[in-house]
Design a protein around this nucleic acid. Structure first.
Length: 514
RNA sequence: GCUCCGUUCGUCUAGAGGUUAGGACCCAAGAUUUUCAUUCUUGUAACAGGGGUUCGAUUCCCCUACGGAGUACCA
């Protein structure tokens, strides 16, 4: 029987989860769901010095917003709990000792400063220092020290790390589900630190141990891990878990729009688009970064956009729900090369989802935005306003900026256009329409349109000369949604009021000229 | 430097020896629209370069160039 597919997303809470991480989570989620498998969230907080308060929360909130609920996580629990590596500390030590006892690992007492010095010296000679079978015999470790010396150091509580002992010069080959055959030579793999001097494991040990214990079948992670995969394989072998080794897949990176380097946290708002799913305030510096959610992206648009950065279905369909994606997602369709990030497509996706949004979908979001204003608008009117504006906005919150005139009298006019079109005749037409509409009891857009067109015809004016003025009266703009529908939305009282005050304004501005 | 990975329109990508190299975004033009937007139609635009292999290479191999990643007691 095939093993049940189990994948994990294993971020470390050293800062806000960024968009590349979200995509990794997305691909993991889709892969798991495609095979009816489990999607596990594991928090990799083994570097106690880099923990950032709030970062872990941020991960939960981000996944939730995107709609990738983990089957198991520190929050959800699960059969292999705990899911936070700092809570698993003793486990790693056991396995590190197992390796020590079987001669597959050794103690090393070199201090970070000593190693740094050696690295510098090597660099000065144009060489790279690697702590491996070629150099370790000149260093301070249990392979070079006598047993008594080692015991003494341990008893004195001298700082030590445990390193994996790698011997031989064979190639380590493996099948990457995205990249195909990949091989590295053992000589290039260094005797990596497994257990740090603070007793915490490094990523490599913790990762392998947890993936094994949590019965992970597929490791889907960023390309930055490709070079350390041979080390992980060696670790599986050293621990005797080769049979249960997961399959590896390395995702292409998300690159800066310039293509120079991977999209990083620092790019943030400098480039004019968010790199985080949610907004984030740095607890140390207080620096704020924008998020897709706060910018007004709908999560379904964000996810749909993101899935295409490095993957495609092989068909020409582009609009997919998360559920549809999980049906058709496959790792073979993941591109190998990094994708330069282009926000324009994301905006397009948002516009698309906005235009298709149902009342139920959009109303809560609109109400949330409405709270930021001091306008009182009924749900019904909010929706009416949205449907009036939705074809000309990219984000729902723009309803309250680009469609401001729907909720309050215009606070500005497009004088450029007004001055071009203005003519005393037009003032008369505006006055007439004001009078006519004042006694119009059937307040429907078709009727209002007929009223207006008749008047314009009587004056032998062109529609295009008068309409922009009337539009300015109602909206302060020279273009926008159907004007008569706007009038209906505003209601008779408000419409007439705005026309009246616009006539006053025009009178004040132009009387001296004529 | 060394190791590994990669390279199709400006961008995201389809393509898995024989295609007028397809789609989407962007941009431009036209139609519709009182305007703007939407929608529809059309257009511009790509196989990094050089060698092989082959009757035939975007597709397979090699080299070069370019790009990326890794090279920590960080993940």
């Amino acid at each position: 029987m095939e093993k049940k597919v189990r994948v994990r997303f294993a971020p470390s809470p050293t800062g806000p989860l960024h968009i590349g991480g979200v995509r990794t989570a997305l691909y993991n989620y889709l892969f798991a769901k495609h095979y009816n498998g489990d999607f596990i969230l594991r928090i990799e907080d083994t570097d106690q010095t880099r923990l950032v308060p709030g970062a872990e929360e941020f991960i939960y909130d981000s996944l939730k917003w995107c709609g990738f609920e983990p089957d198991e996580s520190p929050l959800h629990g699960g059969p292999y709990a705990p899911y936070k590596q700092s809570d698993r500390k003793p486990i790693y030590k056991t396995y590190a000792e197992q390796l020590l006892n079987s001669g597959k690992a050794y103690y090393a007492f070199d201090t970070p400063e000593e190693l740094e010095n050696i690295r510098k010296n090597f660099e000065a000679e144009g060489k790279t220092f690697i702590y491996n079978q070629e150099t370790r015999l000149n260093l301070n470790n249990s392979l070079t020290l006598s047993n008594e010396e080692v015991q003494k150091k341990l008893q004195n509580h001298e700082n030590y790390v445990i390193r994996l002992k790698i011997d031989g010069n064979e190639d380590i080959e493996f099948q990457d589900l995205i990249r195909g055959d990949v091989k590295f030579n053992k000589l290039q793999v260094d005797d990596k630190v497994l257990l740090k001097s603070d007793g915490m494991p490094t990523y490599h040990l913790a990762n392998v141990v947890d993936d094994f214990l949590m019965k992970i079948t597929h490791v889907i992670r960023g390309e930055e891990w490709l070079p350390s995969t041979p080390l992980h394989i060696l670790l599986y072998q050293a621990l005797g878990w080769e049979e249960d080794m997961p399959k590896f897949s390395h995702l292409p990176l998300l690159l800066k729009p310039s293509g120079k380097g991977k999209l990083s946290k620092r790019d943030g708002d400098q480039l004019g688009f968010p790199v985080f799913p949610l907004s984030w305030k740095d607890p140390k510096t207080g620096e704020k970064s924008s998020g897709y959610r706060e910018e007004g992206y709908l999560p379904e648009a964000f996810v749909n956009f993101l899935v295409f950065q490095g993957w495609n279905p092989g068909t020409e369909q582009e609009i997919f729900s998360l559920q549809e994606l999980s049906k058709i997602f496959s790792l073979e369709k993941v591109h190998k090369a990094g994708a330069k990030f282009d926000i324009k497509k994301a905006v397009w996706f948002n516009e698309h989802y906005l235009r298709c949004a149902s009342h139920e979908r959009i109303l809560p979001l609109l109400k949330e935005e409405l709270k930021k204003t001091d306008w009182l608008v009924s749900d019904e009117n909010l929706l009416k306003a949205f449907f009036l504006m939705k074809n000309r906005i990219s984000f729902h919150k723009e309803l309250f900026t680009k469609g401001k005139f729907l909720f309050q009298e215009p606070d500005h006019f497009d004088w450029n256009t007004i001055e071009k079109k203005f003519h005393p005749n037009i003032l008369s037409i505006l006055t007439k329409i004001h009078d006519k509409w004042s006694i119009q009891n059937e307040w429907k857009s078709e009727i209002l349109e007929i009223d207006f067109k008749e008047l314009v015809e009587n004056f032998q004016e062109k529609l295009g000369n008068v309409l922009p003025l009337l539009r300015n009266a109602l909206t302060g703009e020279s273009s926008g949604p159907n004007l008569f529908e706007i009038a209906v939305f505003l209601g008779k009282f408000e419409t007439i009021k705005r026309i009246f005050s616009f006539i006053e304004t025009l009178n004040q501005k132009f009387t001296y000229k004529y």
